[in-house]
Design a protein around this nucleic acid. Sequence first.
DNA 1: TTTAATTAGGATATTTTTATCCGATATATT
DNA 2: AATATATCGGATAAAAATATCCTAATTAAA
Lengths: 144, 144
Amino acid sequence: MFSKACEYGIKASIFIAINSYKGKLVSPKEIAKEIDSPQAFTAKILQDLVRHNIINSIKGAYGGFEIRKEELASIKLSQIVNAIDGDNIYNGCGLGLNNCSEEHPCPVHEKFKSIRDNLKYMLENTNLEELALDIKSGASFLKV
Amino acid sequence: MFSKACEYGIKASIFIAINSYKGKLVSPKEIAKEIDSPQAFTAKILQDLVRHNIINSIKGAYGGFEIRKEELASIKLSQIVNAIDGDNIYNGCGLGLNNCSEEHPCPVHEKFKSIRDNLKYMLENTNLEELALDIKSGASFLKV
DNA sequence: TTTAATTAGGATATTTTTATCCGATATATT
DNA sequence: AATATATCGGATAAAAATATCCTAATTAAA
Ligand code: FES
Ligand code: FES
């Protein structure tokens, strides 16, 4: 479904979100430990998310990654997925035709589109804050 | 969503299905042309589908691939997807946790499961015959 | 101003996926 | 039996995704 990079990116963002609540910066090392991902690879993904203005980095000593508190509720999963994997998963054809359209549908188009639209809707309407709160309360988990 | 191999496998199966209706065997060459895929790679995927008893091969001169007419309506998309990509797409965790479960859910579990279950239901309830008929009638397309 | 801590980013390595090539094997026809 | 035509299957190649390493740049604190 999502690439490894994207899975790490989502989980990392959630972990950063939790800590940003408390005003705490986190490092790639801490993040990789908490989400059970390769550290250097995770660091690359974090850079990517910074470039896409999804997370914020503070360079130098005592630096780290954060998400501005006021943005926590407005950052949607779709932004993270789009930044890392692009929009193919929720806009592209399920069988790889160049374009998904009603005019030139692939064999699964009719059956696939509602699923893909549900996914799109879910990604565009799920924000980091709600996901972070579930982790905080122990209702969900980032690893294992 | 699906791997390239799986996309080719689905499209190839549909094209074989259409021809098996008419009792015609098809070659990897014809298939690759009709579904716009690399021929040798497609041939490997066909072998795989044969091993999984989804399609049938007739070796030697005047041979080719077919699907037994009486099975056309009972072969489900899920069989093809499962043969090539495995069941992760419709059974695995969306964020890559080792297992998807209610007891140890990832942050997107609640929101993801209905989408994944819809996908699973769709794959398990869509058969090759109906997809082939749409191609035959010009209601859907295998390439471009 | 020096030092230590930390992100940025380029280079490289490894693994997986995608793709190609070729000889072996099977088989219907002649 | 010989021949032509296919699939089968192993070896290789190329591209993409995943992962690691090392140095540069930045910056807070001592
Ligand atoms: S054309 Fe394939 S999903 Fe729409
Ligand atoms: S645990 Fe992640 S989708 Fe169920």
